[in-house]
Write a protein that binds this DNA or RNA. Sequence first.
DNA 1: AAGCTGACTATGG
DNA 2: GCCATAGCCAGCT
Length: 111
Amino acid sequence: MTDHYQNIYNIVKQIPNGRVTSYGAIARCIGLKSGARMVGWAMNSSHVIDDFIPAHRVVNRNGILTGKHHFDGETTMRQLLESEGIFFDGDQILDFEKHFWDPFVELTKED
DNA sequence: AAGCTGACTATGG
DNA sequence: GCCATAGCCAGCT
C-alpha cells in the first residue's frame, strides 16, 4: 500500500462541500493505529501531491481550526469553510455535529 | 544517532 | 472547565 497517507487523502477528498470531519475519525476509519497526529502530518504533506486535498474540512474533535496556521493566511481556513456555509464562533465551528461528516457512514453505505 | 516537535485524543485532578 | 500527563510515531535538527 502507499501507506496510510494515500488512505487519508482518499478519505479527505471524499468530504462533501459544507461538511467537516476530525483527524481521529479518519484515523480510526482506516484503522490507523498511529493516531490522529499522522492524519495531520499527512495534511501537511498534502501540498506536495497533485490531488486537491480539502484540508480545511478537517478539524480536531472539538471542531476547532487547529490547522489554520498552515494555510496561506490565518483566516484562510475559516473563510473557506464560511464560503461553504459553515458558521464560526472564533475558530470553533458552530453546530459541529450537524456539519460533521462521518467517514464510517460513507464507507459503510457503499450502496 | 538522539532528541524535539507536532494540523490529536483520552484521561485524571 | 482548564491544566498536566501519557500514548502515539513520522519528520526535522
